[in-house]
Design a binder for these strands. Structure first.
Lengths: 73, 73
DNA sequence: AGTTGATCTACAGACTATGAGTCTCTTTTT
DNA sequence: AAAAAGAGACTCATAGTCTGTAGATCAACT
């Protein structure tokens, strides 16, 4: 699986777990709503700095966004 | 610690463990010699696609490059 | 000891490709 | 209807490439 897709799925999972909307998360981490959307859909190729920004408000270590994903998330 | 620095230290550690020079690793993963050097020094902000490229020839999962680093590494 | 050649790494400048970040509008979900 | 998410296009900063210089290390030779 494309690693961008993997990051997207992980981000979505953790965002939902945190009870946030894309816009809510975007506000928390200082990114644009549509940019967060792009990352979740796997069409963006974020840098490590952005990964860190995304992970921080979710309360997870950055590397968790790169974790392996299995079948039905 | 800056996450770019952390990525750099992790990359260097794993590259050494694999017995590769910066140039050797660069050739293996299709990146430029000077770019690999920059990542290791923490002055570059690599994307997830590049992290994957770097991790592959080292035989480690991509997320390991983002792992926490403790004091005396 | 000094020199030559090979290897590894840090660093700088300039360039091209692409990511960051935003806007607008459409579609889906509730 | 309203909230949430998807999608296309855009500007500007930077990711990533390339060329070259320089310091440090090591081994073989004189």
């Amino acid at each position: 699986m494309d690693i961008r897709r993997r990051v997207g799925l992980n981000l979505k999972k953790h965002r939902k777990a945190a009870g946030l909307s894309q816009e809510g998360l975007a506000l928390e981490c200082g990114l644009h709503r549509t940019y967060v959307s792009g990352v979740e859909r796997g069409v963006r190729n974020p840098t490590v700095l952005v990964l860190e920004q995304l992970a921080a408000p979710l309360g997870i270590p950055t590397w968790r966004l790169l974790e392996e994903v299995d079948g039905a998330g």
